[in-house]
Design a protein around this nucleic acid. Sequence first.
DNA 1: GCGACACTTTGATCTCGATCAAGAAAATGC
DNA 2: GCATTTTCTTGATCGAGATCAAAGTGTCGC
Lengths: 238, 238
Amino acid sequence: MRKDIHNSNIPVRCMSCEVRHKGMCGALSADELLALSAHTRLVNHESGDELAGEKMPAESYATVIRGVVKLTKTLEDGRQQIVGLQFAPDLLGRLNADENAVSVEAASDVNLCRIPKAALERMVKSNPALAERLMAQTLRELDEARDWMVTLGRKTAAEKVASFLLLIATHLDPEAVGEKRQFDLPLSRADIADFLGLTIETVSRQMSKLKADGVISIVANRHIEVPKVSKLKACCGS
Amino acid sequence: MRKDIHNSNIPVRCMSCEVRHKGMCGALSADELLALSAHTRLVNHESGDELAGEKMPAESYATVIRGVVKLTKTLEDGRQQIVGLQFAPDLLGRLNADENAVSVEAASDVNLCRIPKAALERMVKSNPALAERLMAQTLRELDEARDWMVTLGRKTAAEKVASFLLLIATHLDPEAVGEKRQFDLPLSRADIADFLGLTIETVSRQMSKLKADGVISIVANRHIEVPKVSKLKACCGS
DNA sequence: GCGACACTTTGATCTCGATCAAGAAAATGC
DNA sequence: GCATTTTCTTGATCGAGATCAAAGTGTCGC
């Protein structure tokens, strides 16, 4: 993990935070936000930084302010699977758990708002609305995990890649209207492969096929354009 | 779904319920249990009964008293994936959700304790300990879903089948000591295939192979003996 | 601008698990 | 108990995606 010398002591102005009304902070009053800002620290990480290790003690929680974080699990022999992606304004960390169940890594450059373990847990105990919001996020993550199990277990490689592109398009620009979408992939081909249970080569071939079929255009390596979302959706098998 | 004429009005004696101290009821006082018993109903379902449909309105919650319940998702063209198994004393139903995200089906004959939607939600609002326990169950389900994503995405057919047998052995007899395990599979070969993202034939072949290798014996179709759990674990790839 | 390195694409071949096809064994009904 | 149906096993073949190999493209430091 990269040392974040320049980040270690940035005060946080929760009231003017860009995710102020989203995520867990939306459940907090002005007073509570003020109290919270005494504990929180803004930190930046660059793509590839490991934020927490699988089976390591859990030290703090963090809210994603900007960027994408990947949650991975690894088998002894090195086979890896991405088991979740977190976007702003998700909270990282399992409530009341002492140990990480997954490894947490910055998939892109990210801004996080760190909250010490005890501070968040205290606040959850005294604020049922906050507890309820965290429950809602956890249920949403469970739904996403189960949706992804269908993709992993029952979809073809072509459907998997299309489903992934749709997932990214949806998350990076949730308010988009009309049929057109364009975005930068926050993940490398290797990461996409780890997410989809495929190899790099298969991901690459399926992307080329989607391009050849006119479903997407690959403007730059990472920059994708989707002329008609409905056409992409039709490739997802669901 | 089978009509449960004989079940429709069985009063529940929560205080002497066999899962009294387990699951969510462990968070309730004697008074609360008494109040709860005014709302709950014991119901029995036989294997194959559909308890709730995907995308149907959620009508009530239920605690699994005995048996195994499967949660499934289905693609338009009929491909199916089991996304979760629930054992006693798990609670069925997503808190505060109006619609089922999954289809719920009895995998074996089951006894459930039904609780009306409003009654449970009211109780959760007034009892933080209960809310906390439900959060813990949800986090456990999320962990299990993520573990299973690794199995679906990165394990071989042989490892998948071994992992499934270990999962069942662990859940059906959590307090077992020593190396020996024996149990009845609550799922048909078709269900196992749907859980593992495989075909019936592949499941059958891999079971035969585990038997040939002396890792398990198939006493009857559904009854499995594992002489050494550690040997089975070694086949799981993790 | 150029060299070094990492990432991505494309091609050739192989393998694991799917599919197709019987048969065997269990469960179910009468 | 015997016929019928369903479930499970085993065999033969096929194909999607993995693996092995190489070339192409982009990125970064200097």
